[in-house]
Amino acid sequence: MSVRKRLITVLTFNNGILFRTKEFHPDYRYTLNFVDAWSVDEIVLLDITRRGEGERRNFYEVVETFASRCFVPLAVGGYVTTVDDFKKLLSIGADKVIVNTEAMRRPEFITEAARLYGAQCVVVSVDAVKRADREYEVVIDRGTEPTGVSPHEWAAIAEKRGAGEIMIQSVELDGSLNGYDNELNRSMADAISVPLLVNTGAGNWSHFAAGFNEGGAAAVCTSNIYHFTESSVRSAKRYLARAGIAVRTE
């Protein structure tokens, strides 16, 4: 056996309150009733507060709460634009920091952060939309700004710049529960040698298996599929183990 395939829970916070999202917009509010879960392999916390609304402090409090109660790796992102943001998030308990828009605008930011905190600390998240001609395009600033750049080409550049992991999200599939876009995922996995985290679209356990087998994922992410209840994470893991995927089942 070697490194296990990971199951990651992504939680999105609007001004410190847990929200489900659909196509990148806060959809409805969730109750945060868990935290002390044992079976999930990693947790991602994202600040999705719209610019000018809410207070960043509320998100920091969320990160601190998770850091003190969860004994799994914690990756944190949303509005990360400086190495000071890295410093702040790491100081309140993040293990990894997720960058997106600023990395595209200023790729040297990836290198700067990796030099200071190590490549393992830098996750570059890529948001993609599928255009009418079936070509994919990276969009930034919460899906609002087109870039004309192809996701897999950008992923390869981000890795060269120092990214330790790459995360891919499809804007259209966010909240759809229709499954991952594994054509997109595979194009990303083939372009990089660092782990690929696939997000957006999972609606049932078989979608996770497809994310690994067809999408080439090192980790599958989900936010909408379950309420993070302990039994559902465990049941997902059991399903994957039966499907022949090496996961942590304890």
């Binding site: 070697s2 490194v3 296990r4 990971r6 392999d41 330790g164 660092v194 782990p195 090192a218």
Partner: peptide
Amino acid sequence: TAPVPHIGWND
């Protein structure tokens, strides 16, 4: 030859 850094749950 595997990806470096070694990241994840292992034996």
